[in-house]
Amino acid sequence: MTVVMVEDLDPSSADAGVAAHYGDPMREQRTLATAVGLVDRSNRDVLAVPGEERASWLHTLTTQHLSDLSAFTGSELLVLSPHGHVEQHAFVTEDGETAWLDTEPGAGAGLLKYLEMMRFFTRVEPRDATAELAVLSLVGPGAGDLFPDLEEPRVGAVPGPKFAAGSVPPQATSRYSVRAYEGGLARRVPLGVDLLVPRSAKTAVIEKLGLPMAGLWAYEAIRVEHRVPRLGWETDHRTIPAEASFLQHAVHLDKGCYRGQETVARVHHLGRPPRRLVLLHLDGIATDQPPAHGTPVVSGDREVGFVGTAVRHHELGMIALAVIKRNVPDDAELKIGDSVASIDPA
């Protein structure tokens, strides 16, 4: 099997350490879109938060309602700045003894530093567990069939502006079913099933599953198609949750005080976030190379946003997630470099 690593193509990439593709990125994408494939995402950082007060502690520090997070349940959370800007995003997976947080490659150190600063006298012991657990993702419509005992993800609707206090259920807005698996955990998520397995057992788990391997390029194409934001790609230093579509999965809008809550509440009730996340279709005529992260999106003679992640999709062609000004109309003709781009209004 041909294995092309991310760092072979881009030595500076934050995604170094996993395969970009296995020789045929388009075939790998089709597998993830129509069946099920296995993506090695073991470059993700993992933190462990044991301690009897972990649920209530994480509840007070993050955007998610976690005080009642029960054993073998997962969700998503954000850590915000005092002004409401997104600083961290993580999946949380509770096994009854420890809350496991997996986040972007390189983001774990910053998240751990913040958690350690906020310990005070709380009975929790956060630590870096990246060397302990590796993340593998089973992606595709057939992923759930391999774990039929895991329930479909449950994601609540975002309430409208000026919703009545107490109308949002006091529970995590996204609830992911979890079970033990091969010395680790399996977690049902919107794109399939994530496995958090002992790093020493990663190769054995891959061999046992016997699934077609797909590289990170294929995974990113599916993620972009489904408009799933990624910390550091669809966010910058001033991103607020409503701008990058984090509200539904990672933010509870009626759970009480946390850092940055005032900004989240004000923007939501006014209904006017300064920017929005969109899916763009690029003409692909000027170049067949996806634009780089951060490439400006231009309307007329003014810059209106930036490209987050751009990919070549096996059906849709060149597409990209971008963060643009809220007042840019859906029918605007946009330019990204020499390419013409249009907003997918779906």
Rank of each mutant, 00 (worst) to 15 (best):
G271E: 13
P274T: 15
I319V: 12
L111Y: 01
R30Q: 13
V139Y: 00
T103H: 05
A341W: 08
R227K: 13
K335G: 11
A242R: 00
T173A: 07
K335Q: 14
P329Y: 03
T239M: 14
E87P: 03
A19N: 05
G300K: 03
A292C: 06
E225W: 01
V298R: 07
P105E: 08
I324A: 01
R188M: 11
H226K: 14
A180G: 14
G210W: 11
V328F: 13
A332S: 08
L146D: 07
V49F: 04
Q248K: 10
R266A: 09
S13K: 10
G110F: 00
L334G: 02
L150M: 06
A320E: 04
A99L: 15
S67C: 09
H21T: 02
T239L: 11
T34Q: 12
G184F: 03
G192R: 00
V267D: 06
Y258C: 07
L58G: 01
P290S: 03
Y22C: 09
G74W: 00
L47V: 02
V189A: 11
A214Q: 08
V3F: 01
L191F: 05
E234Q: 05
E7I: 05
Q88C: 07
G17F: 10
L282N: 02
V304K: 00
E76H: 07
A131F: 12
E7A: 02
A14Y: 14
A71F: 04
D8M: 08
A286K: 01
V135P: 02
R123V: 06
T31G: 11
T287M: 06
D145F: 09
R175G: 05
L334H: 02
S342H: 15
G142V: 09
L58W: 13
G23L: 09
A310T: 00
A164L: 12
G183A: 10
E225L: 12
L112E: 13
E243F: 11
R54N: 01
A71E: 15
V168R: 00
G96I: 08
A20V: 03
V178H: 08
E87K: 12
L334Q: 04
D254Y: 13
V39I: 10
K113N: 15
V178I: 04
W217E: 11
G140I: 04
E28V: 07
G294N: 06
V193Q: 02
A107N: 05
P169H: 12
R123Q: 14
A157Y: 02
A129P: 02
L133D: 05
A20F: 03
E53L: 09
P198T: 04
V323G: 01
A341Q: 11
E104W: 10
R54C: 01
Y181H: 10
L133F: 14
P291Y: 08
F306L: 08
E182G: 08
L247N: 06
E87Q: 13
S177T: 12
R127F: 07
N43M: 12
L133M: 14
L209N: 06
D10W: 10
R259H: 11
G160W: 00
A143K: 01
D330H: 15
M117E: 12
H281W: 05
M118Q: 11
M1S: 10
P273S: 03
T239F: 09
Q248L: 09
D344M: 04
K202M: 11
L209D: 01
L66S: 08
V193F: 09
G156Q: 08
L32I: 02
V49A: 00
L138S: 00
H59E: 04
M318V: 05
V124C: 03
